[in-house]
């Protein structure tokens, strides 16, 4: 069989599939955006945003440096107020309003000095979903994780740092990291760009992230 045969055979494939590509490419940009917006609306019900205040055990004397005055003597607390359902340690939130606008807004109350504070966006992608000829619904899923830059991250290597995937605003000012000093901060996380950067994280992924945004703090060790 010559390669021209397969090209000729392709010429006669069902034309609805050919037309579909034309229609799709004509309106692709608008469509993809609307898919995202649609997802945003659906996600309002489905997506769970988990805000986790890492509760590390009180350091024992073997682990701590008695000369370091910055070591907290009580568990860290990260309180989130705003687009959250519940706050405190292990805070869990269902985002309802702003998700379709691609931002999260909340007040962060940090009681103790921490060594770093960072955001992990963890998404289960439904890469593809389709119905085959036998009427069976198939899907491929993958997991990817994005982490924002932070001072000292010792996390899982499967995380991918994508510098501009999530934009952080602290008290209205663009910031590269979340604050680490005690205080009350108005935080906005703009994750719109994540949509455009997912191929950096996983070039084969299509973005249907049923995901969580986790905000973690690490104490001084």
């Amino acid at each position: 069989m010559k390669k021209e045969n397969i090209s000729d055979a392709l010429n006669n494939i069902d034309f609805d599939m050919v037309e579909d590509v034309y229609e799709c490419t004509k309106t692709n940009k608008r469509k993809r955006k609307s898919i995202w917006l649609k997802w945003g609306a659906i996600a309002a019900c489905l997506c769970v945003i988990v805000a986790v205040a890492t509760l590390l055990p009180i350091l024992n004397s073997n682990q701590s440096n008695p000369n370091d005055q910055s070591i907290p003597t009580k568990p860290d607390k990260l309180n989130l107020v705003g687009d959250v359902l519940r706050t405190g340690d292990g805070a869990l939130t269902y985002h309802t309003d702003n998700f379709s606008e691609h931002t999260l807004a909340f007040t962060m109350v940090l009681e103790n000095e921490v060594s770093s504070c960072y955001i992990v966006f963890s998404a289960h992608n439904i890469l593809e979903q389709w119905t085959d000829n036998n009427g069976v619904i198939n899907q491929e899923t993958e997991l990817f994780k994005v982490i924002t830059p932070c001072a000292s991250f010792e996390g899982n290597v499967s995380y991918t740092i994508v510098d501009d995937a999530l934009t952080i605003y602290v008290n209205g000012e663009k910031a590269t990291t979340l604050p680490t000093h005690p205080g009350t901060y108005e935080i906005v996380i703009d994750y719109d760009e994540l949509y455009n950067r997912y191929d950096v994280v996983d070039e084969n992924a299509d973005i249907w992230p049923f995901g969580d945004i986790v905000i973690n703090c690490k104490r001084f060790q």
Binding site: I6, S7, A9, L10, I13, M17, V18, D20, V21
Partner: peptide, 27 residues
């Protein structure tokens, strides 16, 4: 003709995105 039928079956079994990319490139 058989080959076209086989390709049709194959394309219809693909996820839509993959199918579109394939047709855009090869059709």
């Amino acid at each position: 003709i058989d080959l076209t039928d086989a390709i049709n079956r194959f394309l219809r079994s693909l996820p839509i995105e993959q199918r579109r990319v394939f047709i855009k490139r090869y059709w």
